[in-house]
Amino acid sequence: MEWTSIVAIYLLVWVMTAFVSLPFGVKTADEAGVAKVPGQADSAPVNFMPGKLALRTTVIAAFFTAIYVVNFEYGWITIDDINFWPEPPQ
């Protein structure tokens, strides 16, 4: 597998992981007991930390990309192993 393909897969996995990780560990003003700023949405986070999110996303995406690349190289699970439509009995 080319290194450019690995980078592209990593970036795709990173973005998906970032979006999935966004709601974890975030509290709203009501949950934290903090006064809201006028005009603030009820669902706006109080303690959003983009650096922590990026670090967590980087580690998780690296793990999943590594598993994908190793599986691609060694062929542990192939498309033939995943049987979505079994053949009907004869």
Rank of each mutant, 00 (worst) to 15 (best):
K36Y: 03
A35Y: 03
T4L: 11
P50N: 05
V69P: 00
V20R: 12
I6A: 15
A29R: 10
K36F: 04
I9S: 12
R56N: 09
I9W: 09
E31G: 01
V13L: 14
N47S: 02
V13S: 14
F63T: 15
F19T: 13
K52Y: 01
Q90I: 00
T17S: 15
V37F: 13
V59I: 13
P23T: 11
V13H: 07
K27M: 00
T58N: 01
A35C: 00
T65W: 04
T65S: 13
L53H: 10
A8K: 11
Y74Q: 14
F63R: 12
A61I: 09
V7G: 01
V59C: 07
F48Q: 04
Y74I: 09
S21N: 15
L12R: 10
L22V: 15
A29V: 03
I82G: 10
V15D: 05
F24E: 06
F19E: 13
Q40A: 11
V15T: 14
I67E: 01
L22Y: 15
F63Q: 06
E2N: 14
W3A: 11
F48L: 15
K36L: 03
A18I: 07
Y74C: 07
K52I: 00
P88T: 04
G75T: 10
S21M: 15
T4Q: 12
A41I: 00
F19W: 14
F84I: 13
A29W: 07
W76K: 03
T4V: 07
P23W: 13
P38L: 06
P50M: 02
S5C: 00
E87Y: 00
G39Y: 05
I9A: 15
D80S: 14
E73K: 12
F19Y: 14
F19C: 14
V59E: 01
V13W: 03
E87F: 03
P86W: 02
N47M: 02
P88V: 04
A44V: 07
W85E: 08
A41F: 02
A35G: 08
V46E: 09
T28Y: 06
E87R: 11
G33N: 08
A44D: 13
D81Q: 11
Q40R: 06
